[in-house]
Design a protein around this nucleic acid. Sequence first.
DNA 1: CTGAAAGCGCTTACAG
DNA 2: CTGAAAGCGCTTACAG
Lengths: 336, 336
Amino acid sequence: MISIYDIAKEAGVSKSTVSRVVNNQPGVIDSKREKVLQAIEKLDYKPHSAARNLALKKTNVVAVFVRELSANFYAEFVHDINHIFDDEFNYGAIYCNRNSHSPSRVDYLGLVNKSVDGYIFIGEDSVTEKELEVLVRAGESVVVLGTNLKVDGVLSIDVNNYEVTYEAIKHLIDLGHQKIIHIGAAETSVEFQERHRGYEQALKDFGLTYNSSRNIGYEYEDAYQYGLILADEVFKEGLTAAFCFNDTAAVGLINGLQEKGIKVPKDFSVVGFDDLPLVRMTKDYIPPLTTIRQPQKDMAIYAVHSLHDMMNHVKKTENRVYKCELKIRETTSKPR
Amino acid sequence: MISIYDIAKEAGVSKSTVSRVVNNQPGVIDSKREKVLQAIEKLDYKPHSAARNLALKKTNVVAVFVRELSANFYAEFVHDINHIFDDEFNYGAIYCNRNSHSPSRVDYLGLVNKSVDGYIFIGEDSVTEKELEVLVRAGESVVVLGTNLKVDGVLSIDVNNYEVTYEAIKHLIDLGHQKIIHIGAAETSVEFQERHRGYEQALKDFGLTYNSSRNIGYEYEDAYQYGLILADEVFKEGLTAAFCFNDTAAVGLINGLQEKGIKVPKDFSVVGFDDLPLVRMTKDYIPPLTTIRQPQKDMAIYAVHSLHDMMNHVKKTENRVYKCELKIRETTSKPR
DNA sequence: CTGAAAGCGCTTACAG
DNA sequence: CTGAAAGCGCTTACAG
């Protein structure tokens, strides 16, 4: 491979001079600058980034970790974050899958150590508290998004899961529902736990006794199958509403229920979470979803800007809890 | 930050010895190994990857580039590739968005130069021919997936777009369709061009004179809007079938058409492309899609294995064109 | 089994 | 404006 030394030789100057022109520094006479540029062009020279990173102790790259890159909700974040880095800063963002369900032999954090200036972790499965502590002790800049993890020195951005769930359940109760089920993905999820708290508190505050939570997994198909099963309980137990952990689950559930002849919202009300654009695909068949919108874009912007500030020690950054908005649309109505 | 030198001092040995235990090399007496391990634990030591990369001239990381990480079809590839690297090799994979539609100030290829052992580019918008040539000249290992780019020294994996499109059009013709429209995303797309060739050849071979291609953009909404418009042409010109560049477009088109009272497949036949699992979400409202399945998983496996072989100079690898399969389901039928 | 030394490809005071 | 030299944190022959 060709190095800075080769360019120096080709152009008849020193490595120092080559370095200066590569980095667009002033104080190089035009004639030499030109020679260097030509040599670079001629030999297809690209600086070796590991060498540069080592010398500069910075990389102009940040790492973004998510549980599963192709998961819908996270994909939006990934998209936004990428664009913000692109548009506003001269930073590259790289992405890593962090699927905790498959015990991975790859230690990304070790792999990536110091080859990155900052870290963004999205979703609670993307990182552990212990890992965060190690990063902080190493002086890294890190922000976590939607994890519920609180570690000194890492900036945390989250959403008011408890309150907004309370609000959604209250909405159902106000409509007259008495038997409302809470559907989550995985019990271990802090998200689930927070929302579960909101669910139970609302039941309690309004004196409802029916109290049932179920975790069904992350996939559309899980929700669809569960809808099929749930139909029975609707008939037997007089269930009239469900609060779902995301929109994909809500759509799956609705499809499963309707398959069994239970119409939404006439016979049954459903609340989703996330307000995914994806749901457009079903828009002509399923009523617009009552759901909860997270201020995703704002969160992404704040995440990127804060990380940037942290990396440049610009100023103190502060944790933030964003408020979600209950979007009442057409999958919830009075029970009949 | 703490370096190998700090560990050496703490453990009372030389850097060489520390390096040996960090890399699990034999030939270190147990008592010293233990001391080093303790020092590492105590000081939270992680090797600086840039330094190691520079010394070793290898990184154990590959980069995967796609146009848009959150795009549906690519997301599947990303998912598969990640899992294969995880399961079979001790390699990390990092992902980069390469959205050519937003002129980016970030030169990923430069950023990532030599901080990665190999490259996978997915989809034609992920890389240019010129970039590939530069990488080859620099001796990099690179594979391209679904790009139609042929550059000496880069392994190319693609799909028989021309043939399978021909087959799909023939299927429609066999059913009795005479006016078939070809719907693409962007004219500049080689994918479009290949499929267009297949479309035109089939028309020609079977003596059809109606010949019309349209490019409508990549999003669901584009297709839906276009479906609304297309409805008119169906009435006026007697169009009876469409071949779409992907399933999302097919669903959007169907929704648009049905909105205007045109039923699929009774009044109009539609063929999709990709056989996305995503389409499940509409399965209770739209008939199962006649579409084209790409052997995606096989392609991902071959891509990862080939790249691994190239990086280790194990053996010659060969370009591959995978055959797609026309899945005849329920959105195509005889015209009425 | 162990350590001193050279080298990986860059950057950047420093001296001129 | 320019170059020689030291240094970034690691690895690995080499000598002992």
